[in-house]
Write a protein that binds this DNA or RNA. Structure first.
Lengths: 233, 233
DNA sequence: TGCGCTCTTTGCGCCACCTCAAACAACAGA
DNA sequence: TCTGTTGTTTGAGGTGGCGCAAAGAGCGCA
């Protein structure tokens, strides 16, 4: 398969310091697969039997509580590892992974993990660094939810999405996958109504442009002012 | 040092599967230290140069944002690893660790990490499992803050504290370290006023007993009903 | 081209929780 | 024992954002 010859992958930071031999070792143990939009690549509480590297597309990581209420933990972008429960000694996935658009990913069976980490230690340390970043981001989120108003949280989230998954357009930077007001609400702990109101207000101020499942940030600078705005003090 | 002969430590789940030789290898590379109440064992954004195992006491893990607002990420209990930034490839600590009472902990210099993990792989996998649990707990916290009211969040937090750090007394289960209403507020994303009001109400209902920097849960069952209470549906 | 579905917008009323304020209680140190 | 400090309680009032409702608007599909 031409996608697996390494040319596509060697450019990723995770693999940049690897030799050709190490790369081959990794790649020949993975299988590449297409995941159509809306497919669950794995399910929360499902048996964790593989871990993944996203090559193309965007993935929504979703947690469901016992009442069926949904929260979006994060989006995964190309080049990122996901589903690496095995690195944390977990037997099940803590969340579901849903393809936000058509995706291509590499998948390794969990049984390959010991060999992989033994033979290619950079791969293991990359995975652990990823986990560290996720923990940090999640703790940041807790802090934001504790200390910020809804308006600031939504602004921060939009800026983060645009930074991580933005695509330059003539009008500004567009979030590169379909995202609903409801999705943004589930990332920020609010309701789609409040998100819609905020986006409408910001559109009037010329900070963003919206559409059905589309958000474009046209004035990141002033949006940042809103995100950092302090009520008191 | 008598504390380091292994008898105290071999009982911990992290070390239960290790041979005497492995244990000695770990322990002779650690130094044991006392940390008096209120001392910062390490500081947020400070250079991460060591990792720790709490032997006795309780530690408050605190994050500060740029406005000086404080959030308590968690409490560390005896037997737990903490400050394991090195396992995630981090150069700095993401939070501060403050002794909530007088504490005793083992400290390893970060330079020892490669040797330790190479020679005692169970130690590494224990650390990674710990990180996985922390990530899971933090994500649970985000979900709670998104979907639950303050009342439920405080009840859940109290139950968790009592479960993790509870001490049986004649009247019920007491949280085993001094904790203020302000502390509970900083764990749940509310204000000390609201926490105080809730605790007063629960005291009237006979669910808890309070005092200065003290909380005793006298009726965990009914407190759990409050924690799981659903407004709608 | 029209129908139905999903997503979005907007208005209105309300209440959970925050803010501000003040008094009270427990403890530590002189 | 007194006094300052830190933690707790409680009241009163205001509001941010939620719940509910209903009307648009874009898109896929027949």
């Amino acid at each position: 398969m031409p996608e697996l010859d390494g040319s596509l992958i060697a450019g990723l930071p995770l693999f940049s310091a690897m030799s050709k031999k190490e790369l081959d070792f990794l790649l020949c143990r993975a299988r590449s697969a297409r995941y159509p939009k809306d497919l669950a690549i794995f399910e929360q509480d499902g048996n964790a039997d593989a871990f993944f590297l996203l090559l193309d597309g965007h993935i929504r990581v979703v947690r469901l509580n016992e009442d069926g209420e949904q929260v979006i933990a994060r989006y995964i972008n190309p080049g990122e590892l996901f589903g690496i429960a095995v690195a944390m000694g977990r037997a099940t996935y803590p969340a579901s992974a849903i393809a936000a658009v058509d995706c291509v990913a590499l998948a390794w069976p969990n049984e390959a993990w010991p060999d992989l980490t033994a033979r290619v230690p950079q791969f293991a340390s990359g995975a652990y660094r990823t986990i560290g970043e996720r923990l940090q981001e999640t703790q940041d989120q807790v802090m934001q939810m504790s200390t910020e108003q809804v308006e600031q949280r939504v602004a921060h989230t939009l800026l983060r999405l645009v930074q991580q998954s933005g695509r330059k357009t003539a009008e500004g930077i567009e979030i590169d996958f379909p995202i609903t007001r409801q999705d943004i609400a589930e990332m920020t702990g609010t309701t789609l109504h409040t998100v819609s109101r905020l986006l409408s207000a910001w559109e009037d101020m010329g900070l963003v442009r919206g559409g059905r499942q589309r958000v474009i940030v046209t004035d990141a600078h002033n949006l940042m002012l809103i995100a950092e705005h302090r009520r008191k003090r």
